[in-house]
Amino acid sequence: MKFPSIFRTAAPMRFDIKPRYYDPVREEIEHRTSQIKRDLEAQGLLEKTDGSPRDIGAYGAGIRGAFAQHKGIKERESPNVFASTAMIRTFIFLLLLGSIFGYVYLGPVIFEYMAYAVVLISAVYFFFRLKPKKKYE
């Protein structure tokens, strides 16, 4: 008998095995058809279906021409520098570092100074953000 509870108890894990099916005839047919396709492609009687060269194996095919197709580092979509997560992380790190050293050297009054600085910086930011842009630029 189970009593009602608001907490969920862990249920025992169930053993679920999915049997594999191996058909040696089907494997042989697939192997022979792939071999015949490779031979016909090598002779030029059959076009390559995916356009990739098959003479170097499955693992090496992806790297061929990868450096030649490199287009360089993508440019940022937004011109805003503060949209970058690295910039935000750096800003938070400097804020924490400044608060620790300020607390050591000035005491608890540093938090007042930092609050004033944050209010001033956010006011300047919102002023330039909300200021209407000129039409002729």
Rank of each mutant, 00 (worst) to 15 (best):
F3G: 12
F3V: 09
I6E: 14
F7E: 14
F7P: 06
T9E: 15
A10H: 03
A11I: 10
A11Q: 13
M13L: 11
F15H: 08
D16K: 14
I17Y: 12
K18C: 06
K18P: 04
P19A: 11
R20Y: 02
Y22V: 14
V25L: 13
V25D: 07
V25R: 07
V25H: 06
R26Y: 03
E27H: 02
E27N: 04
E27Y: 06
E28S: 08
E28L: 10
E30P: 00
R32A: 06
R32H: 10
R32C: 05
T33R: 12
T33I: 14
S34K: 03
Q35G: 01
Q35T: 12
I36C: 01
I36M: 09
K37F: 00
D39K: 10
D39P: 01
D39H: 06
A42E: 11
A42K: 12
Q43L: 09
L45Y: 11
L45V: 05
L45A: 11
L46M: 15
L46C: 08
K48T: 12
D50C: 00
G51H: 04
G51Q: 03
S52N: 10
D55P: 00
I56V: 11
I56N: 06
G57C: 01
A58Y: 02
Y59I: 10
Y59V: 09
A61I: 07
I63P: 00
I63T: 09
I63E: 05
R64N: 02
G65Y: 06
F67Y: 00
A68T: 05
Q69I: 03
Q69K: 07
Q69F: 04
H70D: 05
H70W: 14
K71G: 05
K71R: 13
K71F: 02
G72M: 01
K74V: 12
K74I: 10
K74L: 09
E75D: 12
R76V: 04
E77N: 05
S78G: 04
S78L: 08
P79H: 07
N80D: 14
F82M: 03
A83P: 00
A83V: 00
S84W: 01
S84F: 03
M87Q: 00
R89T: 03
T90W: 04
T90R: 07
T90C: 01
T90M: 02
F91P: 00
F91I: 07
I92S: 04
L95H: 06
L95Y: 09
L95I: 07
L95W: 08
L95A: 13
L95E: 13
L96W: 02
L97T: 11
L97V: 12
L97G: 13
L97R: 14
G98P: 00
S99D: 13
I100Q: 03
I100V: 15
G102L: 13
G102F: 12
G102N: 10
G102M: 13
V104K: 04
V104T: 05
P108L: 06
P108W: 10
I110L: 12
M114D: 11
M114Q: 15
M114C: 07
Y116Q: 12
V118Y: 14
I121V: 14
S122I: 12
A123L: 15
A123G: 13
V124N: 11
Y125P: 02
Y125R: 13
F126E: 09
F126K: 06
F126P: 01
F127D: 04
R129M: 13
R129E: 14
P132H: 09
P132I: 05
P132V: 07
P132S: 06
K133C: 00
K134Y: 05
K135H: 08
Y136E: 15
